[in-house]
Design a protein around this nucleic acid. Structure first.
Lengths: 110, 110
DNA sequence: TTCTCATATACCGATCATCGGCATATGCTG
DNA sequence: CAGCATATGCCGATGATCGGTATATGAGAA
């Protein structure tokens, strides 16, 4: 799973949101580092829906503009949980090696 | 950064290794889940070298077979450190949301 | 009024990392 | 001698993401 996809699932884990709100949520979540392109977001939404990880929650018309809300499915929650565990495991392995390396090499840089 | 790339850097954080050893190391590290294809590995090695994140450490001939060892550069170490922090941060955010969600929804599944 | 920006969804071509397969070569083991 | 592990490397296909564009409305600025 790529980063944008993971972030979309994370955004929806907090509760149903419509597309544009997901973009904003992710931007906030990442301190502005990640601002998904519309193409990326809606393609991801379609794909995740086809995979059964998210589904349409409801549709609203606000100021004559459509808002389509999405929510995480059970499968989506499981998938996000597994992916999160994977991220944490890999971070831990990398940190252990980096720490060991610093002890070995000291402050030396190539 | 994609997962295979991250894992290559992690492998080299433990010390210089040649390509094939990196594949084995990553397979072990991920409990067999990730076994990089040769094409992926050598392409990644070339790319990371071009980006200055790794460099050739030395070359050996073992049983008339070439072994090219790679090592992490200072830039590579920095990059891996930053990426690891990012992973950890995102895992934390996702976990917080998943936890809050479980409290909200209880055991309900869609 | 008119322009720009934020909101909101959606499509499109281009890019590029990865996948999967193949080629090549050697040495060990059954 | 066949098959497997070791070892590097190329190649075409796939697919997620990027960047841009289109469409539409309302709000606020010029």
């Amino acid at each position: 799973m790529r980063e944008p996809t993971f972030l979309v699932l994370t955004a929806l884990a907090g509760g149903p949101q419509h597309g544009y709100a997901v973009i904003e949520d992710i931007a906030g979540m990442t301190g502005g580092r990640v601002r998904l392109r519309a193409g990326t977001l809606y393609a991801a939404l379609d794909r995740l829906r086809a995979e059964g990880l998210i589904e349409v929650d409801r549709e609203e018309i606000v100021q004559s503009r459509l808002r389509r809300y999405y929510r995480l499915t059970g499968a989506g929650e499981q998938s996000l949980t597994a992916e999160t565990a994977r991220l944490r495991t890999q971070a831990t392995i990398a940190e252990r090696r980096l720490r060991a390396r610093r002890i070995q090499l000291g402050g030396a840089t190539t």
